[in-house]
Design a protein around this nucleic acid. Structure first.
Length: 996
DNA sequence: CCCCAACCGTA
DNA sequence: GTACGGTTGGGGG
């Protein structure tokens, strides 16, 4: 083990206890063996591992062990005979399960650890301290208070049931004392379960208060006479020895002799067949299926393991006997799962046998690049009977390509014109591959361009009837719907009362596989993977002035176009899906992409209310102010001109008036950017300042106050933005029509626009934003001790940076010093260059270079991170977020130095920006469930990169804020245990400006 | 009618 | 220095 590794220590006994009590008491397998606890244990372990392991980045976890209690006889019994004396023997049906659970642990390919004479907690403590000393991070999977004394900046606990990480602040919040005082607190309070005496009459609150006052237990006992409360004083004086004994009992030993050294706990890859063999023997069908899917194993080909433990055979649990774990080897069934030596390509493409995922993916690529599309398999469906045939076929296959045709690209406005279905009859046979597709026209019109036209074309199924047939198919969880950019179709169908369930989205699959490398539009994907150029929309519906909406397209032409789209989508799915598995990107797709489809669809559907009166008043004010500036500008320029034309403005400023030009644009024009004009203004010229101010006013007016009201939906009266899931390289979302991710906030004038975003009556808007999330991610990925410490302590991070760099104390620091450090911190995230930093700070490039040098001297880990990221990008052509999302930079090796440098900066930025994006994506996916579970009705409306905006009923606000905050702060767990805490601030108000 | 450059709003 | 989307002006078809 080395610095930066991450050790997971699972409190196995705690897991058993929870699994046993969380599940129906008497779950038995067919021969009567009780296995409820084993089942719960396996499910919990599987969840923990799949959440944590598949991230492929190696941040979390590198080492893993499950720790068990060995027996009731421990050193504590020698110290205090009554220790755990009132503990009852475990329930009878739990007894045979102890051994099975150890078997389960080994089937999961994990070390299973217990040591005679010690409790699991002592072993955990010993490993944790050893790992910490090396500089590795530790996550103790348990919520037991007895383990909280172990928490440090390097050691966290994780409550897997509540999906919550426990760090120093959480311990303080729960117990009122920091982790290092937990021992003293427990010594005072005692523990009735373990029969630790403590001091009578002292509970957690009193104990925390006393420790706060006296510092520690010894001081308290020595100065007990000073305590004012008589009864309390007497109790403490009388029971001082008992408290000291209790302290001995609750102190965890960190010197347990260990059979397995730390390095032996390294996390091995999952052995699918071995685990499946065990699970089949236990008859856990659901989990078997899940594991088989995740490991790409065919469970049917794996024989159940032969268990050597049967009901009654092992009559004593570890608390009663010597705790000898069952040694019986498990028949892993590995032989059965081995792939045949070689398979013909065709057979592999069929998915026959156990070809590797990579082979399957490659075979699919080759097959589909050659397979021709066959338009003769496309039909128009004009009656219900035929539609029913198609739906039945889809139900039988369990897989259907789906696409809607509408009158608009805006899903909130779009009218459903028709839909298409594609069915693959012979999916996996490359020679007999056959996809057929149907277009179901619903409201196509006749007589394009005809004054009398617009009547419904004949022989179309009425929309309501067709949708009544379609609904059960789309809502059937056992039929996978495959679409391209499903969010659109999902919303269109939702507006017709249909909620699509079980789906895949080929656009998102492509995005996960090739973000930064390719365009994820259907036409491009089709050309890339199918060697087929689909019919262009404009060849069917025209474009521009001669363009028509799809309902005016001739039904035959519409069928050719729409059926092809469904066909292409289904084929793309067959090509892309296996690639996800082959590249190890299934988890990214399934956790960070696919679930967001419906989350975002709901947010878009909800929309947000804007107050048009406020905006129109603002527009008036802005127009007046701008007009005043225009007069002054013409006066100063000596003529009228188009102020908004950079070309004309340049001629005035740098030609006519002869001002010194600054930067040039890439076309060779003098730049008139704000920074150039600011510089000119600083040298005493009046005009440039007025231009800057005029630009600000006209920008606010044209982009916001004038434009936003045009986006108010005629029926909902709200504004419905459209989020794009697949348009950034880093994993961020983007928002458009309107873009609600760039509503002004920096200037007072701009903020007025935010006051127009309001809540509905009886509600408030809640804005919750991550504080410094990108710097925290940087502290995590680059593992910088000072940054981690500062974030753990809640210190002002820019001031800390300044203090480290310039040796200035944080107290009374000049704001300019802090400003510079802040610019450097941002610069680091952006892949700093001396040029850029100099620009930002308005200093010489050499001085900026000195700052950077000094920064790297103070934080050498940052330089290491940047260098290793660059070389990773050069070697692989992509970089990864902490959750394994990839961002590709194909030009990173460009021979053009500026192109190369740009790609290097972008690849330094992408893991930081992208990890933060992944975190908030996770928060969004978890949020709806978290709110529902708490019985809250808050509705998530908007996302602005590090901020979520909700609409919350007035009476629920107090209860809602903690749920939102906790869900966001814990969003990385359990996949990644962040080395720095995430912090979220949230406020409620009647409008967005005040809530932010 | 379409596209690009310049500029500027956000994180 | 990163990542976006929208508006305007202006050139070319």
């Amino acid at each position: 083990m080395k610095k930066g590794d991450h050790l997971f220590l699972v409190d196995g006994s705690g897991f058993i206890f929870r699994a046993f009590h969380a599940l129906p008491p008497l779950t038995r397998k067919s021969d009567g063996l009780p296995v409820g606890a084993v089942s719960g244990f396996c499910n919990m372990l599987w969840k923990l591992l799949t959440d944590a392991r598949d991230t492929s980045v190696g941040v979390t976890p590198t080492h893993f062990a499950v720790i068990f209690d060995y027996s009731a006889k421990t050193f504590r019994k020698d110290i205090y005979d009554a220790y755990k004396a009132n503990r009852q023997a475990p329930p009878e049906e739990l007894i045979p399960q102890f051994g099975l659970i150890r078997e389960a642990t080994r089937a999961f390919n994990l070390p299973c650890i217990e040591t005679e004479g010690f409790e699991a907690d002592d072993i955990i403590a010993t490993y944790a301290r050893q790992a910490e000393a090396i500089g590795a991070d530790v996550t103790v999977v348990s919520s037991d208070k007895d383990l909280m004394q172990l928490v440090t900046p390097m050691v966290h606990m994780y409550d897997s049931m509540k999906d919550k990480q426990i760090g120093i602040p959480d311990v303080i919040e729960k117990w009122g004392v920091p982790p290092e005082k937990m021992i003293d607190l427990q010594a005072l309070v005692g523990d009735s379960v373990d029969n630790v005496p403590g001091i009578p009459g002292i509970g957690p609150k009193t104990a925390a208060q006393l420790l706060e006052e006296f510092g520690d237990l010894d001081t308290l006992l020595a100065r007990a006479g000073e305590i004012k409360q008589v009864k309390r004083r007497e109790n403490i004086v009388a029971n001082a020895d008992q408290a000291r004994l209790s302290r001995q009992l609750v102190s965890l030993r960190t010197d347990v002799p260990l059979d397995l050294a730390l390095h032996a706990l390294v996390l091995e890859p999952q052995n699918g067949p071995k685990l499946i063999a065990f699970l089949k023997a236990m008859e856990f069908t659901t989990l078997t299926r899940r594991v088989a899917a995740a490991c790409d194993c065919n469970a049917e080909e794996i024989e159940p393991a032969v268990l050597k433990i049967e009901w009654g055979e092992r009559a004593r649990g570890p608390d009663l006997d010597a705790g000898v774990p069952a040694k019986a080897p498990i028949d892993t069934g590995e032989a059965a799962a081995e792939a045949p030596a070689s398979l013909p390509k065709a057979a592999i493409a069929k998915g026959v046998g156990a070809a590797t995922p990579a082979e399957l993916a490659q075979a699919r690529i080759e097959v589909f690049a050659k397979a021709k599309l066959d338009p003769s398999c496309y039909v128009t469906v004009r009656d219900v009977e035929v539609l029913d045939d198609w739906i039945r076929a889809a139900q039988e296959t369990g897989l259907v390509g789906f696409d809607t045709e509408t009158t608009s690209l805006d899903p909130m406005q779009a009218e459903l014109v028709g839909f298409s279905l594609a069915i693959a009859d012979n999916t996996d046979n490359p020679t007999g591959l056959a996809v057929r597709a149907a277009y179901v026209p619903l409201i196509h019109k006749t007589g394009v361009g005809d004054l009398l036209g617009g009547g419904l074309a004949e022989n179309q199924i009425p929309t309501s009837e067709a949708l009544a047939r379609l609904k059960p198919l789309l809502e059937d969880p056992s039929v996978l719907k495959v679409a391209q950019n499903l969010k659109f179709d999902y919303l269109v169908m939702k507006r017709h009362g249909i909620t699509v369930e079980s789906y895949d989205d080929t656009m998102l699959m492509s995005y996960v596989l090739e973000a930064g490398k390719a365009n994820h539009g259907m036409d491009a994907l089709s050309e890339r993977w199918l060697n087929h150029k689909p019919i262009a929309f404009k060849d069917v519906a025209g474009s521009g002035k001669s363009g028509v909406t799809f309902d005016y397209v001739d039904i035959d032409k519409a069928t050719a176009y729409a059926a092809e789209d469904a066909d292409v989508t289904l084929r793309l799915w067959m090509v892309l899906k296996p690639q996800l598995a082959a590249m190890g990107l299934t988890t990214v797709y399934e956790r960070l992409e696919r679930p967001l489809v419906e989350v975002l669809a709901r947010m878009e559907e909800r929309g947000i209310t804007i107050d048009r009166q406020i905006l129109s008043r603002l527009s008036g004010e802005l127009a007046q102010k701008a007009a005043a500036f225009e007069d002054e500008i013409y006066q100063l320029a000596g003529e009228k001109f188009t102020i908004g034309s950079p070309k004309q403005l340049g001629d005035i400023l740098f030609g006519k008036m002869g001002l010194p030009g600054g930067a040039k644009t890439k076309t060779g024009q003098w730049s008139t950017s704000a920074s150039v004009l600011e510089d000119l203004a600083a040298t005493g010229h009046e005009l440039p300042r007025k231009i800057v101010d005029w630009r600000q006013l006209t920008k606010l007016k044209s982009t916001y106050t004038d434009a936003l009201p045009g986006y108010v939906h005629p029926e909902t009266k709200r504004v419905h933005t459209c989020y794009s899931l697949a348009s950034t390289t880093t994993g961020r979302l983007s928002s458009s029509e309107p873009n609600l991710q760039n509503i002004p906030v920096r200037t007072a004038e701009g903020r007025k626009i935010r006051t127009a975003f309001i809540s509905t009556p009886g509600h408030k808007l809640v804005s919750a934003d991550y504080s410094q999330i990108e710097l925290r991610v940087l502290a995590h990925v680059a593992d910088i001790p000072q940054l981690r410490q500062a974030f753990s302590d809640g210190i002002d991070i820019h001031a800390m940076t300044a203090s480290e760099m310039f040796g200035v104390p944080v107290e009374g620091m000049p704001s300019e010093v802090r400003r510079r450090a802040k610019a450097i911190n941002f610069g680091i995230i952006y892949g700093i260059s001396a040029f850029g930093l100099a620009n930002q700070l308005g200093i010489e490039r050499s001085e900026a270079g000195d700052y950077i040098k000094r920064y790297f001297e103070r934080f050498p880990g940052i330089r290491d991170y940047m260098e290793s990221t660059k070389s990773f990008a050069r070697e692989n052509g992509y970089v990864e977020t902490i959750f394994g999302r990839r961002a590709h930079y194909p030009e990173i090796k460009s021979s053009n130095p500026s192109v190369r440098a740009f790609n290097e900066r972008a690849s330094i930025n992408a893991p930081i920006q992208g990890s933060a994006a992944d975190i908030i994506r996770r928060a969004m996916v978890k949020m709806e469930h978290a709110l529902a579970k708490a019985g809250l009705s808050a509705r998530m409306l908007l996302q602005v990169h590090d901020e979520l905006i909700f609409e919350v009923e007035d009476e629920e606000i107090e209860r809602t804020l903690p749920v939102i905050i906790s869900t966001m702060e814990q969003a990385a767990m359990p996949a990644i245990a962040m080395k720095v805490p995430l912090k979220v601030d949230a406020r409620a108000a009647g409008n967005w400006d005040e809530a932010h």
